[in-house]
Design a protein around this nucleic acid. Structure first.
Length: 379
RNA sequence: GAGGGUAUAGCUCAGUAGGUUAGAGCGACACUUUGUGGCAGUGUAGGCCGUGGGUUCGAGACCCAUUACUCUCC
């Protein structure tokens, strides 16, 4: 199968921001892009129809660990892959479960062979090796498959960070080998993205970038950031990784971030992002809007009948009022979660779309300076 | 009119046999959330315990009076 292709269209004159297109067998992705997280095959509280029409999502995520536990690989294979199962016909990216090794650390054991997990659902034990994860990701059927890595916590001492990085590199080679031995499962290409690790050590990050680049994958990811380190440090290491990863491949910064993080990291040369923030924070009443950040539960919105966000193109943000949405939150209505999630995802996709337009006009840096204080302010 | 019940945080109520800074839930307010075990979590504010007397070393608790609300009967 032909591999995923990245066409770098323009790099901003006054920053390292890039605009490009990623071509997959499920269509094109315009970068920079934000990818809504759909852990168990569903972007929480948002329908696929809304993701297409309102959010204008171009690619969504799934999670290997969670999908493996539920509904299970047998169901996904019987369905003909996740695209057919959940009806999402645009590209899908699956995370490998490496992050769950980190976030579910209480129940794990890592060895050279792989990671031993205990299911958070029923406590049953499961072994994830790089080979097994590749097989699962094949069965899920994502267009972009993340390598199985270990995400070390922050802070990690140098010795552990190096040991962990070396393990991630060896696991990467096993991922590559396994994919080479197994065919694309559903008739379209499935592309491996390796993941840079190295914690917060400059030499390790540089070495990891070099190793990851040597695999010559169709795209590269930066992992192990946004795990509790100071934000300036996150930017510093993102910049370092961008400088050490190939120009002609998309760069994916995993798990980031706030809207202002996105703009900062786009300026450093990142092309792809994912984050639970717009959906999770949305479900907890935090709205990201074109005018700033709103805690919609606050009483000040009780009688504010202006629409949620007139600056967005989607119908829902221009239909419901802030007062009504606040009421839904206070009344614990399910519709609140739906509207807030849709607002936030729409905003994120709008933001990266605007960024892309500005990059193509070589005006990204100026535009970013103008819009940053507006979207960051607390209303 | 007679008899009974209840008055404690914005709301609904706990407060053990009278004993150090009177609690909870909800609400309010603020903060947190970054490859989703999260319709979540953390914190703060807010009470001269209806009012006035009394008993006691000490009363939200006991006694008297009073006011409001409430129930039953006439």
């Amino acid at each position: 199968m032909p591999q995923l292709k990245f066409n770098l269209q323009n790099t901003d004159t006054f920053s390292k921001a890039r605009a490009g297109t990623i071509t997959t067998d499920h269509g094109e992705i315009l970068t920079p892009i934000f990818m809504p997280v759909g852990t168990v095959g569903s972007v929480k509280a948002v329908t696929q129809q809304q993701l297409y029409a309102d959010v204008k999502a171009q690619i969504i995520l799934g999670n290997t660990y969670h999908l493996y536990l539920r509904p299970g690989i047998e169901v996904l294979e019987a369905a003909g892959g996740l695209h057919k199962f959940n009806g999402w016909q645009k590209p899908i990216l699956t995370d490998s479960g490496g992050y769950q090794v980190f976030s579910l650390a209480a129940n794990r054991k890592i060895t050279e062979e792989g990671a031993l997990f205990q299911s958070h659902i029923d406590g049953s034990k499961h072994m994830f090796s790089p080979e097994k994860v590749m097989d699962i990701e094949r069965s899920i059927g994502a267009d972009i498959i993340m390598a199985f890595d270990e995400c070390p916590p922050y802070p990690s001492d140098y010795a552990y960070a190096k040991k962990s990085m070396d393990l991630t590199h060896r696991w990467l080679q096993r991922c590559v080998n396994r994919l080479a031995e197994t065919p694309d499962k559903y008739g379209y290409s499935q592309n491996l993205f390796p993941i840079v690790q190295g914690s917060t050590y400059k030499d390790l990050r540089e070495a990891s970038c070099q190793y990851i680049a040597s695999v010559n994958a169709p795209g590269n990811a930066i992992g192990g950031l946004s795990v509790g380190e100071p934000i300036e440090m996150m930017y510093e290491f993102t910049a370092l990784c961008c400088e050490n990863l190939p120009l002609q491949k998309p760069r994916y910064l995993m798990g980031v971030g706030t809207p202002w993080d996105l703009l900062a990291c786009i300026a450093l040369g990142i092309d792809m992002f994912d984050c639970v923030m717009p959906t999770r924070n949305g479900r907890n009443g935090m709205l990201f809007t074109t005018n700033g950040v709103i805690n919609i539960r606050n009483k000040k919105w009780a009688t504010d009948f202006s629409v949620i966000d007139a600056g967005l193109p989607n119908e829902i943000s221009n239909f419901y009022s802030k007062a009504y949405l606040r009421h839904l939150f206070v009344a614990n209505e399910i519709l609140a979660l739906q509207i807030a999630s849709l607002q936030n995802l729409s905003f994120y996709l709008w933001l990266v779309g605007q960024a892309r337009e500005q990059i193509l006009k070589n005006n990204f840096a100026n535009w970013k300076n103008d819009i940053l204080p507006i979207i960051k302010q607390r209303l």
